[in-house]
C-alpha cells in the first residue's frame, strides 16, 4: 500500500530494533502508531553505524550485543503489520546485513513480512541498479536520503529513484538531537520538490514538538529518531512503551515534549 501521511506534518518514528529487546521494540512501535505516528522506521542494528551519532550508536551496540539479527527485525515487522494493517513500515539498515542476507532474499522476506519500503543508509543512487530492480520486483518502496550538500542533479536522481517519500537530511552531519532546526533545511526541501510530487520527510535533529510543527510549514513529514532512542535509553525497564506513546502524543499535540 502507499505510504500515507494522515495529518500535516506526517510523523515518522525511528526505533533501533532490539533495544532494549525485540518484544519491547514491538510494543513501542504499537504505542507510537496508536499515538499518531504514520510510519515506523525499524532500524536494523549494525556494528559500525558510521552515519549515526552517539545515541543511536549506543542503541545499536546494545541491540547487536543481544544478538539481534535482520531476520528478527523481519519478524517484528510481520507482527506489526498483522496488528496495524494501515501503518507505514520502512526497514532501515546499513547495507552489510542486507548483503549478507542476500538482496533478493531480503526483498522477498521484507515483502512477506509486510514492509512497505526500505531505506539503506549507505546506498547511493549510482550504485542502486540491482537494488532498485529487486525493490520493483517485490513491490517495495526504496527511500533514498537527500542531503543539503547534494547538488540539484543528484536530488533529481534521488527523487526519481525514491518511492513512498524522499528523506531529506536537515543538516550535514550524523544523527542526533539539536536545539534548533537547521536553517538550510527548508531550502533543501524546496529544491527536492522541484523534481517530485512525492512527500518529503525531514529528519536529523528533529526532536521536539516545536520542531515537528516548524517542519510542517515546509515539509510533508518529520522524522524523529535520536530523541526517541535517547528517551528509551533513559526510561526504566518495562515503562518504555508508555514513555514512547506519551512522547509521540506530545509531538503530535504541539506541546513542548
Amino acid at each position: 500500500m502507499p505510504i500515507r501521511f494522515n495529518k500535516r506534518p506526517g510523523l515518522v518514528i525511528y526505533l533501533t530494533a532490539g533495544d532494549p529487546d525485540l518484544a519491547t521494540t514491538r510494543e513501542m512501535a504499537l504505542a507510537a502508531i496508536d499515538n499518531g505516528a504514520d510510519v515506523i522506521e525499524l532500524g536494523v542494528p549494525f556494528s559500525d553505524p558510521l552515519a549515526d551519532g552517539p545515541v543511536i550508536q549506543r542503541a545499536s551496540e546494545r541491540a547487536v550485543a543481544r544478538g539481534t539479527r535482520l531476520s528478527d527485525v523481519l519478524t517484528i515487522c510481520k507482527e506489526l503489520r498483522a496488528a496495524r494493517p494501515a501503518a507505514g513500515i520502512i526497514l532501515f539498515s546499513y547495507l552489510n546485513p542486507v548483503v549478507r542476507f542476500g538482496l533478493p532474499a531480503f526483498a522477498k522476506a521484507a515483502k512477506e513480512a509486510g514492509a512497505d519500503g526500505v531505506l539503506l543508509t549507505d546506498m547511493i543512487v549510482e550504485e542502486a541498479g540491482e537494488y532498485l530492480q529487486v525493490m520493483r520486483e517485490h513491490d517495495l518502496m526504496p527511500v533514498f536520503l537527500a542531503a543539503p550538500t547534494s547538488p540539484d542533479e543528484r536530488l533529481k536522481a534521488i527523487a526519481e529513484a525514491s518511492r513512498g517519500f524522499v528523506y531529506a537530511i536537515s543538516r550535514v552531519g550524523i544523527t542526533g538531537t539539536q536545539t534548533e532546526l537547521a536553517s538550510d533545511a527548508q531550502g533543501l526541501v524546496e529544491r527536492i520538490k522541484q523534481f517530485t510530487t512525492l512527500p518529503v520527510a525531514l529528519g536529523f535533529g528533529v526532536s521536539t514538538a516545536a520542531h515537528v510543527k516548524a517542519v510542517g510549514d515546509f515539509a510533508d513529514a518529520a522524522v524523529v529518531g535520536s530523541a526517541i532512542v535517547g528517551l528509551i535509553e533513559k526510561t526504566a525497564a518495562g515503562e518504555e512503551a508508555k514513555a514512547v506513546g506519551e512522547f509521540v502524543a506530545a509531538l503530535r499535540g504541539g506541546n513542548a515534549a
Partner: peptide
C-alpha cells in the same frame, strides 16, 4: 542521471 541509467548492482557489481 536518471533511474534508467543506474546500472551498478549491489550483490553482483559491474
Amino acid at each position: 542521471m536518471s533511474v534508467s541509467q543506474l546500472t551498478s548492482p549491489v550483490t553482483v557489481p559491474t
